[in-house]
Write a protein that binds this DNA or RNA. Structure first.
Length: 640
RNA sequence: GCCACCGUAGCUCAGUAGGUAGAGCGGCUGACUUGUAAUCAGCAGGUCGGGGGUCCGAUUCCCUCCGGUGGCUCCA
């Protein structure tokens, strides 16, 4: 599942950092700017044979912009021109007319040959000479220098200038890409600024998040404290940031969530496959694709070979589909994998709890279809599938915001279809229209969860991909025996599993804010029933009841510790356990249970057999797994 | 990636105007044998995130690295 709608610059400006991105893609000139009170350099001795002739021995230039430059192996005239523009840009910002070009090999490990470097430096010098006073330190000499950096915010910058041919067409378009934002409601499209968001506050938060980028200043999102206090997951300092550890309860929740999504997708008609987690940088199909995404992946060096860790299951499934013999009779063909893990080296400042990780678990289904009509039909079905999946996680349409994005061409031909999506959810949705196709897809939706800090995170999503069959050479045989490219739907019916866990925890916090007790859906609660014996003499009866509940496939445990009953109840409540059953003399004699019910927030009397039947109904059609720790609380380890 | 703040016992946090630290919870031991969110007492537990510097002396001041968080930027 490739997900993108915002755009990023191919080469970014990161002050104070010279090595900006992975060197594996294309070469690019590197420049370090220092706005200086002065620079003073002395030429010592020749460093290389091709050193430039130079007569003076010392030079001092006052009040100038010094550009330390490394020319890299593939730099050319085009790069020189860009460099001229960059230097002009910086010179104007710091308001100086005096520029020192200083050849400086140490910014790069992939240098060009000396002749190329000299000619490119000359090109830059000539490009600047008409407007600036340009000084040039000689190339190919060892030099000593003293520099005085002004130290204001713009006085130190590093830039990387990419080669023209390496920059993909699609990325150039980014800057000129036009999009429109609308709200679709009751079959009408409204402008954002005239739409009345009353009663749709979360949608407004989502819209703000998407369009204006405004963010409320708030604390850590509440799911982070729950993720630790409920012993679900935790940061792992021994790994890279964004790679979490899961404790037994978290692992259980995660497994159950994975099973649920997988069951849905298999019922929907997909075939589960498994594909490698790392791929060759030099593979032709992947290479052309990867060029669009600057250094966002983990790199693995194995001997002399370079691999990247997958960021979705797309490659693996596309490479399978490419080699498969597919005929029109077998379409739609659906392949599915639950990627454990997908990897994205998200920026450090972006990582938070379970909301955004560098290693995450992504259910990813690809549906290959013949034509747009079938694609739309599948899109609609998968839209509904996604709603069902999220519902089982306790997330209904009020808990997330719907965004639909498409190209204007697609809209012209499919207005009714888009309106149908709006009618399905019966609430306003955010619409983004691209003037022309920029990504590989023409239509996508996402369900976005807005959390307690008013930040949005995408959950379910489906896209109609019109490009990648061609790129990966995936074909099917049509009715006339000819090879044709299918359309491909990318679908993650839940979004990343960790993100679903995040949404459930954030939703629990919303419940708490409403004065209700935070809780997880019954089927996914790591402990569903806790038995609390009133004293030691009730242990035997407690064990008996435990076995009966357990045999119905319910996760039940027993608090056999020698502490007060009040304390046991308090702790069970803090663990969000749905049902708490105290066993004392009354229960032993009557056989009726007194159940403390967290969903209804009350205690009630119920015969054991009825209680078991009720629980059994709650987990019908849901994945069932055994408890993942000792059933005896006295044997439990505290992980946090 | 940039900027800011934070990192003290297993957890949550207090404190030290520079002289190596304290509470609550948790743990252990003992008493209590309990009817729906914390029974009482005693004990143990810390190279004050890592490294470097200044100083007679650093957990405290400075630098740096790591980790966390917020903002910016960005998000296949």
């Amino acid at each position: 599942m490739f997900i993108s709608f915002n755009v990023n610059k191919f080469c970014s400006i990161i002050p104070g950092n010279i090595f900006i991105r992975s060197p594996f893609f294309c070469s690019s000139m590197r420049i370090l700017f220092i706005h200086s009170d002065f620079i003073d350099y002395r030429v010592r001795e020749k460093a290389i044979e091709g050193a430039e002739e130079y007569s003076a021995s010392e030079e001092r230039i006052e009040e100038c912009l010094v550009a330390f430059i490394s020319v890299e192996s593939k730099d050319d005239r085009q790069v020189a021109e860009k460099a001229v523009n960059e230097i002009k840009d910086v010179a104007n910002k710091v308001d100086t007319r005096r520029i020192v070009l200083y050849p400086y090999a140490h910014l790069s490990s992939d240098l060009s040959d000396p002749d190329t470097a000299k000619s490119i430096l000359s090109m830059i010098e000539n490009g600047l000479r008409s407007e600036y006073e340009v000084h040039r330190a000689p190339f190919g000499w060892y030099k000593s220098f003293t520099i005085s950096c002004k130290g204001h915010p713009l006085s130190e910058l590093s830039k990387q200038i990419g080669g023209g041919e390496e920059e993909p067409e699609a990325l150039k378009k980014e800057t000129t890409l036009k999009t429109y934002w609308k709200i679709l409601y009751d079959g009408n499209l409204y402008d954002i600024d005239v739409f009345d968001f009353t009663g749709h506050e979360k949608l407004r938060d989502f819209v703000n998040y998407e369009i204006s980028g405004t963010r409320a200043v708030v604390d850590v999102p509440p799911h982070v404290k729950y993720m630790r206090s409920l012993e679900i997951a935790d940061y792992e300092q021994g790994s890279d940031s964004g790679n979490l550890r899961y404790y037994p309860r978290g692992k259980l929740i995660k497994s159950l969530a994975e099973s649920l999504v997988t069951n849905y997708v298999l019922d929907y008609g997909a075939m589960e496959v498994e594909t490698p987690i790392m791929y060759d940088y030099e593979h032709p199909a992947l290479k052309s694709y990867l060029q669009r995404f600057p250094a966002r992946q983990y790199t693995v060096l194995s001997g002399d070979d370079k691999y990247f860790l997958r960021f979705s299951a797309c490659f693996g499934q596309f490479l399978i589909a490419k080699d498969a013999l597919i005929t029109y009779k077998q379409l739609p063909l659906r392949l599915y994998e639950l990627t454990r893990y997908s990897f994205r080296r998200e920026k450090h400042g972006e990582l938070v709890g379970l909301r955004r990780l560098r290693a995450f678990t992504m259910p990813d289904m690809h549906t290959f279809v013949q034509d747009m009509e079938t694609a739309k039909d599948e899109f609609l079905k998968q839209f509904k599938l996604s709603i069902s999946v999220l519902k089982d996680f306790g997330l209904d349409l009020n808990d997330y915001e719907v965004a639909v994005r498409f190209t204007s061409d697609f809209y012209k031909e499919n207005m009714k279809f888009i309106q149908e999506l709006g009618e399905l959810v019966k609430k306003p949705i955010l619409v983004q229209v691209w003037e022309e196709k920029f990504f590989y897809f023409v239509l996508k939706f996402e369900f976005n969860f807005v959390d307690n800090t008013k930040k949005a995170a995408a959950l379910s999503t489906v896209q109609i991909d019109v490009d990648n069959a061609r790129r990966f050479n995936i074909t099917y045989i049509d009715e006339r025996g000819e090879k044709r490219y299918p359309l491909i739907l990318h679908c993650s019916p839940s979004g990343a599993i960790e993100r679903v866990m995040y949404a459930m925890l954030e939703k629990a916090e919303f419940l708490k804010k409403e004065g209700k007790k935070p809780v997880l859906p019954f089927w996914i609660s790591p402990v569903q029933v806790r038995i609390i014996p009133l004293s030691e003499k009730h242990m035997e009866k407690s064990n008996e009841i435990l076995r009966m509940i357990e045999s119905a496939g319910i996760r039940v445990d027993i608090d056999d510790r020698e502490i007060t009953m009040q304390k046991k109840i308090r702790e069970a409540e803090m663990e969000w356990i749905p049902y708490i059953v105290v066993i004392g003399d009354r229960e032993v004699s009557t056989g009726t249970l007194n159940v403390r019910d967290r969903y209804r927030d009350k205690t009630r009397e119920i015969p054991l057999s009825e209680f078991i039947e009720e629980l059994r109904n709650c987990v019908r059609d849901k994945p069932i797994k055994k408890i993942n720790e000792s059933i005896f609380l006295s044997k439990r380890v505290k992980f946090v």
